[in-house]
Simulated scan of single mutants.
Amino acid sequence: MNWGNKLILVFVAFAGLMFVLVYKAMNTRYELVSKDYYQDELRYQDKIDGKANAAAISQIGVQTDQEHLILQMPKELYGQPLKGDIWLYCKTDAVKDLRLPLSADAEGRQFISKKQLKADKYLLKLSWRAADKHYYTEQDIELNIQ
């Protein structure tokens, strides 16, 4: 094989490699944390204030039983009407995300059925209002659902 044939083989191999890389790049999923990313960033001061308010009270408790993920609201908020949102954000797959309204019972517990969730690592983002104060907290949780 002479040097001209070797040169053609190198160009063909390079073109094939480039084709494979372009094909893989075109079929890769890119997901943003939020569809309204820029609007969320403009409201970031609310999140900072909510974190400061949440740091002044006891933490959210997260427990599991056979059928539920149980969120326990801080004792300081028992008996107060709570309005807010729960977002179980799956970092690896947006299809596994779950958004729910906060509806804690009289003892400050919220039950979330495990049937709505898949086994994975989640970031619990909890935003709520109580007594005209905004609260916000984030917590990493891992669910092993069987």
Rank of each mutant, 00 (worst) to 15 (best):
N2T: 05
G4Q: 15
N5I: 06
L7H: 12
I8N: 08
I8E: 07
F11D: 03
A13T: 11
F14K: 05
A15C: 13
L17V: 12
M18P: 02
V22F: 11
M26Y: 09
M26S: 15
Y30D: 13
K35F: 13
Y37F: 14
Y37N: 07
Q39S: 12
Q39M: 11
L42M: 12
Q45C: 07
I48R: 13
I48M: 14
D49R: 14
D49M: 12
K51Y: 11
A54E: 05
A55M: 09
A56P: 09
I57H: 02
I60S: 05
I60L: 14
I60Q: 04
I60C: 04
Q63A: 14
T64W: 00
Q66W: 04
Q66N: 15
E67Y: 01
E67F: 01
E67N: 13
H68G: 01
H68Q: 11
H68M: 08
H68W: 04
L69F: 03
L69H: 03
I70Y: 02
L71S: 02
L71I: 07
Q72V: 08
Q72N: 04
M73Q: 01
M73V: 05
P74R: 01
P74G: 01
E76N: 04
L77F: 05
L77S: 00
Y78G: 01
Y78E: 14
G79R: 03
Q80G: 06
Q80E: 11
Q80T: 07
P81C: 01
P81K: 12
K83I: 09
G84F: 06
D85M: 11
D85K: 02
I86K: 02
W87Y: 11
L88F: 04
Y89G: 04
Y89W: 08
C90P: 00
C90I: 00
K91E: 09
K91L: 06
A94S: 07
A94I: 05
D97Y: 00
L98H: 00
R99D: 00
L100T: 00
P101K: 10
L102D: 00
L102C: 02
A104Q: 02
D105T: 08
K115G: 11
Q116F: 07
L117K: 01
L117H: 03
L117V: 04
D120K: 04
K121G: 09
K121P: 00
K121V: 11
L123F: 02
K125I: 13
W128S: 09
W128R: 02
R129F: 15
A130G: 11
D132T: 10
K133S: 10
Y136S: 07
D140M: 13
N144Y: 12
I145G: 06
Q146E: 14
Q146P: 08
